[in-house]
Design a protein around this nucleic acid. Structure first.
Lengths: 110, 110
DNA sequence: AATAATATATCGCTATGTCACATATAACAT
DNA sequence: ATGTTATATGTGACATAGCGATATATTATT
C-alpha cells in the first residue's frame, strides 16, 4: 500500500468517478478501487463509508437503500447534477496538481 | 490554490527533489515550489519548516547553518545517501499512485 | 457446522497541512 | 530618518481525513 498521506484529497475524485456512469454501493466501490489499481490502492471502510456520507450531505451523490431477496441490503449512490460539476472541476484540479508535482520533482519525462 | 488534502504526502517528494542537485534553505525551497508550479502549489512555512526538521531527524537530509555578511542566517539542507534512496523510492511510489488514480478516474487519455 | 465473502457501521488514533502570530535583518524608496 | 517590502526562520492551536480494530448480520461455500 501507498503512503497514507498521498491518498488524502484523491478519495473524492475516485468515488465520484466510479459513480459517474451508474449507481454503485460502498462495498462495490471499495472492491473496484482495489481491482482497477491492481492492488496499489485500497480504501479502508473506516474511510470509505464516512466519505460517502460526506459526499451525500454535500449533495454531490445521492443514495438509496436497495433490498433484494438473496442479497444483503445495500446503499447505492449515484452522481447528482451538482456532483457532475464537482467531478469535472476535481479532474482539472487533479491534473494541475500532478503536472505541478511532476514539474517540481523533475518527473516530466519520466 | 489546490485542495489542501491533495498536498499531503507529496511534500516530502518535493523537498527531497529540490535538494537533490544542491543544498538549499527553507525559504528558497518555498519560493521554488511556488515559482516552478506557476503558483499552483504553495507551502505554508508552518508546514515547511517542521517538515524539514522531520526529514533531517530521519536522516534523509542534512542541514547546516550558513552565515554570510550581508545575509540573514540560513539553514541549508542537502540530500544524504539515505535520502537519495528514499527519493528514488518515493518517485516510484508517486508514479504508481498517479497511474492508479488515472486508471480509476478514467483519465488515462486525458 | 464452520468458514469465507458480502455489506454496512463507528471509536479512537495519528499524521500533517494551515491560520495566525512572532522575531529579526537587509534592501529600497520617499 | 522613516517606512515598506523581501528575506529568513520559528511555533502553538486547530482542522481534516485516512487507518486499525472491532462490531453486526446475511449469504454462499465447503
Amino acid at each position: 500500500m501507498l503512503d497514507r498521506e498521498l491518498k488524502k484529497g484523491s478519495a473524492e475524485l475516485l468515488i465520484l468517478s466510479l459513480v459517474e456512469t451508474r449507481a454503485r454501493h460502498g462495498y462495490e466501490i471499495s472492491k473496484m478501487i482495489e481491482a482497477r489499481s491492481g492492488g496499489t490502492l485500497k480504501f479502508n471502510v473506516a474511510s470509505l463509508y464516512p466519505l460517502l456520507y460526506r459526499l451525500e450531505k454535500r449533495g454531490w451523490i445521492e443514495g438509496h437503500w436497495l433490498e433484494k431477496a438473496g442479497q444483503k441490503r445495500r446503499r447505492c449512490y449515484k452522481l447528482t447534477k451538482e456532483g457532475r460539476k464537482i467531478l469535472k472541476a476535481q479532474r482539472t484540479t487533479w491534473q494541475s496538481f500532478v503536472a505541478a508535482i511532476n514539474q517540481i520533482a523533475g518527473l516530466d519525462n519520466a
